[in-house]
């Protein structure tokens, strides 16, 4: 398992990384935690000529309360997200997702920016940032721009990031729904990536659901908000039957991944089971 030989550059700052990206063009790749990129390089499925390592840029590792939103630097590791008091209070679903990624070694190196930039259909975070209605911040030679999470995931392994852009920050609104969020995961037995991951953020008052956002990871070619479920439960009294009929809508009308190990039928059924469990947990 030896990658093709490559050049290695260490970026000292975000602007440094952006100019290195410009300099080395399309054959360069950003290296963050390396826990998705390096395995694919070892299998020679990825053969970048130059790696631009942003792993040492401390200005990308932070979790801050900005009032309306939490700002999380893209270099923040899963371990930091998992153990942050701030995130546990204001967006518990995100820390629950972080805690279920890989093992301790993976969580110590892997970064939230790396996951979102990589956009693996089987990754945990994507459904969560959708449910939390997050905003993604990207920086390129033309400056900074923000992308709503709902516009960010565009296809299998595809995102709204353009060439030369670096994902720098994730913003999580500090609304009441996000404070009442959760993430439940049905792991594939071997890889323990999710067969299905369901994130729900819900505000409820007097036993009925005033607002809700549902994000599904691992189910489709890319993570998606499930409006069918949301529309069904929003405004309803939360009880067994309303939750059952809402979760029965999970992944409806969506194309769903399948292979020899998991059929489409099974994945759909599990999306329903996990949606039901997540809604029940928050009710």
């Amino acid at each position: 398992m030896i990658p093709v030989s490559f050049d290695y550059k260490r970026a000292n700052s975000v602007s440094d990384a952006i100019s290195l990206l410009q300099q080395h063009g399309e054959n360069a790749k950003i290296l963050a935690g390396g826990h998705s990129l390096v395995p694919t390089m070892k299998l020679r499925l990825a053969t970048p000529e130059t790696l631009i390592d942003i792993g040492g840029i401390m200005e990308l590792k932070y979790i801050e309360d900005k009032g309306d939103y939490l700002a999380i630097g893209s270099g923040t590791t899963h371990c930091m997200v998992e153990s942050s008091d701030l995130i546990q209070q204001k967006a518990p679903g995100l820390s629950q997702a972080a805690a279920q990624i890989g093992d301790v070694q993976v969580r110590n190196r892997g970064t939230i920016g790396g996951v979102l930039a990589h956009s693996d259909p089987q990754a945990d975070y994507p459904g969560v940032v959708l449910a939390l209605d997050a905003t993604i911040v990207a920086q390129g030679s033309g400056g900074e721009r923000t992308i709503a999470a709902s516009d960010y995931f565009t296809g299998l392994w595809e995102t709204a990031l353009t060439e030369g852009e670096i994902l720098t920050e994730i913003r999580i609104p500090t609304d009441s729904a996000n404070a009442n969020s959760c993430y439940l995961k049905f792991p594939q037995p071997a890889s323990r990536y999710p067969y299905v991951g369901c994130a729900v953020a819900m505000s409820a008052s007097g036993g009925s659901c005033s607002d809700v956002r549902v994000g599904l990871s691992g189910v489709g070619e890319f993570a998606f908000r499930d409006s069918g479920v949301e529309d069904s439960i929003r405004g309803q009294t939360l009880n067994e039957s309303s939750i059952a009929s809402a979760s029965a809508k999970a992944a409806q009308g969506r194309s769903v991944l399948s292979d020899v190990f998991v059929s489409e039928e099974y994945r759909r059924a599990m999306a329903q089971v996990y949606t039901k469990r997540a809604l029940t947990q928050l009710s």
């Binding site: 037995p189 071997a190 890889s191 990536y193 020899v260 190990f261």
Partner: peptide, 11 residues
């Protein structure tokens, strides 16, 4: 062999 790695073959 469709599960020739630790990603798919469950130990």
């Amino acid at each position: 062999l469709l599960n020739g790695s630790m990603l798919e073959y469950c130990i």
